[in-house]
């Protein structure tokens, strides 16, 4: 289940989309989200789908793979569809069962909102699938740079983000080890009442916190002896390069937005 989940994961590759500047990708994603909310009829929704498929092809991602990885989102999708089906009124009455009616407007709205939801999820997933977490952090740091004027510690926040990201797998391994250690001492986590199961989590969480604090302290010393004194006077090893394809990408999304605006009713 978890291995096929692709929400928030990064899959290395070498497509045009992979090679784009992460800043451009963030801007394009936000622009596209605006465009998604402009669509309001069949033609516009169809063009949204076509556009997303086009990006999937550019990113060399298999649409079926993406759809499979987003199974968890479909629960939400079905729920919103049913809500619209039963609650949105208008158009011709299709089924009248006395205490509820299903009307054509409900189906149309349900499908449209469903597409809207899928498009939003797919486009953000494409962004995270094609951008490594560290470049996303870099991009956020660069884009938030003006906030420094308002005394926002942009560099420090970005540093914290990248260290947290780096420690996720380490702490996962640690959790695994602690679970095994506690199981071998007779703890049970998978059986019993919900209340008991939550209680059984404590012997996992406490050692995990203790070790995380230990790690944090070690890390602080290691950073300090390597000369870390905060963002002042620091140079950056990673450089983000804005190229022509990034500008083109943003122009394409804007043109697409204009097209959708023109097609909407």
């Amino acid at each position: 289940m978890l291995s096929s989940m692709i929400l928030g994961r990064y899959i290395p590759g070498n497509s045009v989309v992979h090679r784009m500047d992460p800043r451009a990708k963030i801007i394009m994603t936000i622009l596209f989200m605006v465009v998604v909310f402009m669509a309001n009829n069949t033609v516009t929704y169809l063009s949204l789908i076509l556009f997303v498929l086009f990006i999937l092809v550019l990113a060399k991602l298999n649409p079926i793979f993406v759809v499979k990885g987003l199974k968890i989102v479909f629960v939400l999708l079905i729920f919103t569809f049913l809500m619209h089906l039963f609650l949105t009124k208008g158009g011709t009455v299709l089924i009248d069962a006395g205490w509820f009616t299903i009307e054509s407007e409900g189906i149309v709205k349900g499908v449209f909102i469903g597409i809207r939801l899928v498009m939003l999820v797919v486009i953000t997933t494409i962004m995270t699938l094609t951008t490594s977490p560290i470049s996303l952090t870099d991009a956020i740091e660069k884009m938030a740079h003006p906030l420094k004027k308002f005394k926002v510690p942009v560099h420090e926040i970005a540093m914290m983000m990248s260290i947290s990201l780096r420690f996720i797998p380490t702490l996962m391994d640690e959790t695994d080890k602690i679970i095994k250690a506690q199981s071998s001492r007779g703890s049970t986590f998978m059986t019993g009442k919900v209340k008991d199961r939550i209680k059984a989590l404590l012997p996992i969480i406490i050692p995990l916190f203790v070790s995380a604090f230990q790690r944090a302290e070690d890390m602080a010393i290691a950073m300090e002896v390597r000369g870390y004194t905060g963002g002042e006077g620091r140079t950056s090893f990673r450089v983000l390069k804005w190229t022509l394809k990034d500008t083109i990408g943003i122009i394409v999304v804007i043109l697409f937005g204009v097209l959708v605006w023109w097609l909407r009713t």
């Binding site: 990248s162 780096r166 790690r215 390597r226 950056s236 090893f237």
Partner: peptide, 27 residues
Amino acid sequence: QNPDNQFVGATVIDDVAFGLENLGVPH
């Protein structure tokens, strides 16, 4: 001592560069 607790960068190359970044070495 602990190899995990002194790895600052997200990847090998970032980690090696960390000390140089702190010293303000040009790219």
